[in-house]
Design a protein around this nucleic acid. Structure first.
Lengths: 212, 212
DNA sequence: ACCTGAACACCGTTCAAGT
DNA sequence: ACCTGAACACCGTTCAAGT
């Protein structure tokens, strides 16, 4: 009795689940996502290499947990971009693009994990899928607001959102993967690259007032 | 004497280098790029698991060989797109986009290998880098022609090329990695998705005739 | 309930040794 | 010159066993 509420997970370590996830996140960015080993995570936490199996079904399940956190961070950045420029969907979209690229550059390995086709995107990991969908919903909302205010051209919201997403996603992954040719990657300011992409992208999304 | 010319590599197997590369390409698409093992390639070729080391420095070196082939295929598709619509840069760019996406969908694992940050893009593999740069040069040429003919807006060629590339690259990787939300991935026709992206992208690239 | 250690089947890579 | 086999240090995962 006196079980001190229902939420307890003491015994040998504190919240091992959380500790493992946290350490994994750190180790992930120290190297390549494919070089992250469950055994190394366990060693870093200070626990036997089989202990993580009490908290994650397997390695992939742990990776899914990390990726979900990444998508949540992305959603948060999107929300901040919207809040920063109320009632200005065009600027919101541009700001969202900048933050998307910035986040990708800050945690490149996590970005690869989220978008590198490493994890299944079906319903194997519902939490992961939910986090990913939430991020896309945030983007759709900006497009919808822009259409409502007449700033963006009309058309299928999903398709317009996909277009904006593709542009900024492509740039992000090209930066993260290092596939840009020397001329571009030697540009001091990544913000200039992002601006070039978002500006042209916005140009294509804008309503053509000559059509009215 | 009578050495039958200079090009000989008989002994036990024919051109083992080529056989390994070829088998690796096939095995690659049968599974994930990260699950491709050198030992499995050797077994498929019918040779001991250390034999590949006579022809490739290590596993990464073999992967770089595969990726270079991928970039060459991309360049070829670009060239075909240009040839198909002479003197029409806008249509060339759209066609190039379609072929880029199509190629990515045909060999998703090779695409991940080429763009997944698995290989170093510095001068570690000169052939790989050269193949990659060649593909980008093809794209730049389309942009340049479009500017010359007045179809595209003026501006830094590299930046405009990057913009076009980002849009189509982003779509390709989103398709290949499976990160699209259900609504979009359930669309029967990927060509419709590609058209949506390329059309809006072209809209942003076009010269604004009202500016003249 | 939570963790450990031995064990298994796989890796990539090296190296002495065979033809 | 080209290939092999044993060996090493790593994996992920399972399972009986400990507290």
């Amino acid at each position: 009795m006196n079980k001190q509420a229902a939420s307890e997970k003491p015994y040998h370590h504190g919240d091992l689940h959380e500790k493992i996830l946290c350490s994994a996140c750190e180790l992930l960015e120290e190297n390549t996502v494919s070089s992250l080993s469950l055994r190394a995570v366990a060693k870093k936490v200070g626990v036997s290499h089989t202990a993580p199996y009490r908290h994650f079904k397997d390695k992939e399940s742990l990776l899914a947990g990390i990726a979900a956190v990444g998508f949540d961070r992305l959603s948060a950045q999107l929300a901040d971009a919207v809040a920063a420029f109320p009632d200005d969907p065009a600027t919101q979209l541009q700001e969202a693009g900048h933050r998307y690229v910035q986040l990708a550059l800050e945690c490149p390995q996590c970005t690869q994990l989220m978008f590198g086709g490493i994890l299944p995107c079906d319903d194997t990991y519902p939490a992961l899928r939910a986090s990913g969908d939430a991020a896309f919903d945030g983007l759709k909302q900006i497009i919808e607001d822009g259409q409502a205010s007449g700033a963006f051209k009309t058309g299928d919201i999903e398709l317009l959102a996909l277009t904006a997403w593709s542009a900024i996603h492509g740039l992000s992954l090209l930066l993260v993967s290092g596939n840009l040719p020397e001329i571009l990657s030697s540009m001091i300011d990544n913000r200039a690259l992002t601006s070039a992409v978002t500006t042209t992208m916005l140009e294509g999304l804008k309503a053509h007032h000559s059509d009215i």
